[in-house]
Every structure is written in C-alpha cells, then in structure tokens.
Simulated scan of single mutants.
Amino acid sequence: MSNLDQFFAEHRRLRECTAEMAAIARRLDPPGVEELNDARWRFSRTLLRTLTLKDRMVYPRLRLHADPAARAVAERFCQSTTADYERFAAHTKRFPPDVVVRDWRAYAVAVRLRTAELVDRLDREERELFPLLDDAPRLASMPFSQGTNWAADAWRIRALLGMDAADDRAA
C-alpha cells in the first residue's frame, strides 16, 4: 500500500464516521452516553488521523507542483483546514457529554451542520484537490509540514469524552 493509498483509505473511513454521526444526530432521542461517546471518539480519532496524513502526504507534494494554479488550490485548502478544525474544536468544547444529555436537540442540530460542512469539504477535496496529485512530485511522508500536530488535541477530546476513565474501568 502506498502512502496515498493509506490516506485515501483513511478518507473513506472519515466519510463512514461522518455518516454515523449524522445518523445519530437524526434520532429524536439521544443514544446512551457510552454509545455516543464511542461514536464521537471514532469520528474524532479518524478526523485527526486524516488531517495528519493530509498534512504529511498531500500538501507537501502539492506545494512542489509545477503548476502555480495547483499550488494555489493546495494552499487555499491547507489554510481553510485550520479554520475548519477550529470550528470542530469549538464544537467539542461546547458539547461535553453532560451538555449533550441536557440539550440533545441543540447538539443534534450542531452535529448535522458540522457533518454537512465536512461532507461538502470532502467532496470538494476529492473533486478539486486530489486530482492535482497525479502530476505532483512523489515524496515520502513529511512530518507536520504545516507545523500543526493535529493529534495533540486527541488527549483533550479523550478526556472530555471520558475515554481514559472507560479504559481504566475495563482494566
């Protein structure tokens, strides 16, 4: 499996997790906290891995593309990633599990909005960004080309969702 094959597989997993969260958000009543937190963690973990892989495998190649228009498209997507992630991080902070339980409808609406935005983003990437990789220079994976350690936020999200406490109880 090439590096990009790994990335594209992760992109497909992110679509699956996004669909799972959208389906949960369409429920009239909230699922159990454990079920929801597990789904939120799967989504968050997959999003963070995808961002890391994109930062290591996609943007570095496109920054070296011979076509200035291709480099500009890549830079536009790269810059918007930060703003998109800030909205996601604010969403997770706004909706810890106790708030979700108290205000399911507000959470469900917010999830439907965020998932629709993400599906739109994934569609645009696949349509506008990924085809540019065909003519981009081949590179090995580069560590944190944008200088962002996307996975660092995983610890905050795990703690917010009580994932480590659940692991401790299972041990």
Rank of each mutant, 00 (worst) to 15 (best):
P143A: 01
H11E: 14
R138Q: 09
V111R: 01
F43K: 06
S44I: 00
E10A: 15
V100F: 01
K54R: 13
D5N: 14
A106V: 02
M57G: 02
L36P: 07
R138K: 13
W41H: 11
H65I: 00
R45N: 08
R102S: 08
L4S: 05
R114N: 07
R87M: 07
T52V: 02
T52Y: 08
P96K: 03
R61K: 08
D134K: 13
A110E: 07
E75P: 05
A152I: 10
W104D: 03
A106G: 10
R76H: 12
A136W: 08
P137A: 00
A69S: 07
R76E: 15
E75G: 03
E86W: 06
H91K: 07
L129S: 02
W41D: 03
M142V: 15
D5Y: 05
I24T: 01
F43G: 05
A22R: 07
T115V: 03
F130Q: 00
L122K: 00
L122H: 00
E126Q: 12
D38F: 11
A170D: 06
A108S: 07
L132I: 02
F88R: 02
L28S: 15
T50F: 14
A171Y: 12
V119G: 08
A110Q: 03
V58Y: 04
P143V: 06
T50N: 14
E86N: 12
A170F: 09
Q6M: 09
L113K: 14
F144H: 15
H91W: 15
R26S: 08
A140K: 07
